[in-house]
């Protein structure tokens, strides 16, 4: 129908990158303004993490590290990582709800960039991630966590976590497209993310009290690698050894490689599901 295209110059044949960016921001706004009408989500994003920090700190801290403040270098980086993984599930639940309700069909019938609905959701979820990381860090600082290196190290720390969360969220996108109800995405969260985060050094240092195979999982788990990188960046030394040196680059790289591997599996799977459903 090239004749028709020529006859109506107003009908652009594609979206420009600037338009695509604007559309992504508009859809980011849409995903964030929802919070205004659904205060429960704000509770999810703030009160729940605060509660977890306090419970872990005051219940486990004295037993595991002798005191709450001694437990802080273990707990705060660990719980920030755990929270980032859980928070990435919202990408899947939100996507699932949109597809189920017909909101996604509406977006896809509009002359907008194909990537904008997903990009908008991921960007909004990133904002929510930063919000809960800040809350967790803030609570940690209030109850005795100390940044012993430099405050500037928060920037690479957050960027590393966001990068990993972004890669990991493709697992969430896949589950969101694969299951038929948002609750099922959450079930995945609980049955997979809980074990992953607990089989790590997020809440307790890896020691030879554990059988070899559990230790192997704990040491190689991307959650442990992220925890190590965060401790290296913010605390600067290994837990319980102020004179030691906590490397950052190695664990950070390993964690990112894990993220790339996860995305390499779930991006093609997600795209396949997406095409199959349409």
């Amino acid at each position: 129908m090239t004749t028709a295209t020529a006859a109506r110059p107003g009908l652009a044949t594609r979206v420009t990158p600037v338009e695509a960016f604007r559309q992504t921001l508009t859809l980011t706004w849409r995903n964030l303004v929802q919070i205004k009408h659904n205060p429960m989500e704000l509770v999810d994003l703030s009160i729940q993490p605060i509660m977890f920090v306090l419970l872990f700190a005051y219940v486990f801290g004295p037993a595991m590290a002798g005191s709450v403040s001694a437990y802080m270098p273990i707990l705060i980086p660990g719980i920030i990582v755990q929270n980032a993984l859980f928070a990435s599930m919202t990408t899947g639940t939100g996507l699932n709800a949109d597809v189920g309700k017909g909101v996604f069909d509406r977006f896809r019938s509009l002359p907008i960039a194909r990537s904008a609905p997903l990009a908008g959701r991921i960007l909004a979820d990133t904002v929510k991630q930063v919000w809960s990381m800040a809350i967790l860090l803030g609570v940690g600082l209030l109850i005795g966590f100390r940044i012993e290196t430099s405050w500037l190290n928060l920037v690479p720390a957050f960027l590393l976590l966001l990068a990993f969360a972004l890669l990991f969220s493709w697992a969430s996108v896949f589950i969101g497209l694969a299951v038929d109800a948002p609750e099922k995405v959450q079930i995945f969260g609980f049955t997979v993310i809980f074990p992953i985060t607990f089989l790590s050094n997020a809440f307790i240092p890896v020691s030879d009290r554990y059988p070899g195979w559990i230790r192997a999982i704990m040491e190689n788990n991307p959650v442990s690698k992220l925890g190590d990188a965060l401790r290296g960046l913010l605390v600067g030394h290994p837990v319980g050894n102020p004179a030691g040196d906590q490397p950052v680059g190695g664990p950070a790289l390993t964690a990112l490689l894990w993220g790339v591997a996860i995305a390499a599996v779930f991006v093609p799977l997600s795209l396949r599901l997406f095409r199959r459903n349409t």
Binding site: R30, V33, Q34, K101, V103, D105, R106
Partner: peptide, 12 residues
């Protein structure tokens, strides 16, 4: 398009 399943965002 007004699809069979409402395409409105219930939270907005």
């Amino acid at each position: 398009l007004t699809g069979q399943y409402a395409g409105v965002d219930e939270m907005l």
